[in-house]
């Protein structure tokens, strides 16, 4: 489960995901929301005088909570696609969305 959190750039580490576009003091967009941080990106942001980042924090779930959440996601997506399961393009889209949602848990 993801929640927003504002952190100091000095606390940023690899694999954190930015939740909001990173804009430098001159108004230039340096990094789009959703991007995954690497050490070189973090260094680059520091050089551009970025002091804070809004990132996604993952909330830890118990095994039972995780399983329930996974089942809920699968059931929701199954229902959403229930009227279009005979269409190959929609099956492809369903697979992509399922993978994306499950990855978050």
């Amino acid at each position: 489960m993801k929640k927003h959190s504002c952190i100091s750039i000095s606390d940023a580490i690899d694999d954190m995901q930015v939740a909001v576009d990173v804009i430098d003091p001159k108004g230039v967009c340096l990094l789009r929301a959703g991007a995954i941080l690497t050490s070189s990106i973090i260094k680059g942001l520091m050089k551009r005088n970025i002091e804070e980042l809004t990132i996604y924090r993952h909330v830890e779930l118990s095994d039972e909570e995780r399983n329930e959440r996974l089942k809920s996601i699968i059931d929701e997506i199954d229902h959403r696609f229930s009227k279009v399961i005979d269409k190959p393009l929609m099956l492809e889209l369903k697979s992509v969305l399922l993978e994306y949602r499950i990855r978050e848990v």
């Binding site: 229902h79 959403r80 889209l93």
Partner: peptide
């Protein structure tokens, strides 16, 4: 709709 963000009146997806 696929992402399930918000609710627009039904929980189904039209075909692409």
């Amino acid at each position: 709709r696929g992402l399930g963000i918000g609710f627009s009146g039904d929980n189904l997806i039209p075909a692409l």
